[in-house]
Simulated scan of single mutants.
Amino acid sequence: MRGYSLPSLAFASSLIAAPACAQAPLTEKNVSMGLSLAIIQGALDQCTKDGYKVSVVIVDKSGNVAASVRGDGTPPHTLEFARLKAYTARTRNQTSLATMKQMDDPAFAFLRQIPNVVGVGGGVPIRAGNEVIGGVGVSGAPGGEKDEVCANAGLAKVADALK
């Protein structure tokens, strides 16, 4: 056979003979649209009750936006900042407030170099049991701690579905 060496043919035949389990699709938990909308509504309800105009973003397991709402009367930056907070919570598997505290530690200075990771409160991971399947980010309240209260209120609304 021209152009093919014996080792390359052996490798190609080993790929064809790979076990069937390697071809099975992945099954994983992720946020759904209904879950996203319920979390958003719970967060908006809490912030409205507290007198804050906010934007809320949900990211999925991969860190991509699953749903977002720019609240009435909010500045344009709140939607993007909410996304960054949600992304931070998802990728760091902790609140963005906890990430903010880590960034003060010189041992975690590398966190400042990770694109789209922010150190400010308002982002909370979405967990199905112990597995992080997304993140919720809230922006617009006067302080990240207040944004985080609203994010947690949204998660409380769907707590039974996440058990």
Results as ranks from 00 to 15, higher is better:
Ser139His: 08
Cys150Thr: 01
Ala107Thr: 11
Lys101Ile: 06
Pro142Trp: 02
Ser13Asn: 14
Ile58Cys: 07
Asp160Ile: 02
Gln94His: 03
Lys49Trp: 00
Thr78Asp: 08
Ser8Thr: 15
Thr27Val: 15
Phe110Pro: 02
Ile39Tyr: 06
His77Tyr: 10
Ser96Cys: 04
Val69Met: 13
Val56Asp: 00
Phe81Leu: 14
Thr88Arg: 03
Gly3Trp: 09
Gly154Phe: 07
Ser139Leu: 06
Tyr52Met: 08
Thr78Trp: 00
Gln46Thr: 09
Ala159Phe: 04
Ser14Gly: 13
Glu28Cys: 10
Leu26Ala: 14
Gln102Trp: 05
Lys85Tyr: 03
Thr27Asp: 13
Gly135Phe: 03
Phe81Lys: 03
Glu145Ile: 13
Leu15Glu: 10
Pro125Gln: 04
Gly3Lys: 02
Gly42Phe: 09
Tyr87Ala: 07
Val117Arg: 03
Gln94Cys: 10
Pro142Lys: 01
Ile133Asp: 12
Leu6Cys: 04
Ser62Gln: 12
Ala107Met: 07
Ser32Ile: 06
Asp45Phe: 14
Ala86Gly: 00
Arg92Ile: 10
Met1Asn: 06
Val59Leu: 01
Val132Lys: 02
Leu6His: 15
Leu15Cys: 14
Arg92Asn: 14
Asn152Met: 13
Ala151Leu: 05
Leu15Met: 14
Asp60Val: 07
Gln94Arg: 15
Met100Ser: 11
Gln113Leu: 10
Ala153Lys: 04
Ile40Phe: 02
Leu35Gly: 00
Pro76Ser: 14
Gly73Trp: 05
Leu35Tyr: 10
Pro106Trp: 05
Leu111Ala: 08
Val117Cys: 04
Val124Trp: 12
Val31Gly: 08
Gly129Glu: 01
Leu44Asn: 09
Asp147Val: 06
Lys157Ile: 08
Leu26Thr: 09
Leu15Thr: 10
Leu162Lys: 05
Gly51Val: 03
Glu148Ala: 02
Leu6Asp: 14
Ser32Glu: 12
Lys49Ala: 12
Tyr87Lys: 07
Gly143Glu: 08
Gly73Lys: 06
Val149Glu: 11
Phe11Asn: 05
Val124Met: 13
Thr74Asn: 12
Val124Glu: 15
Ala161Trp: 08
Asp104Thr: 13
Ile16Lys: 14
Thr27Pro: 10
Pro7Tyr: 09
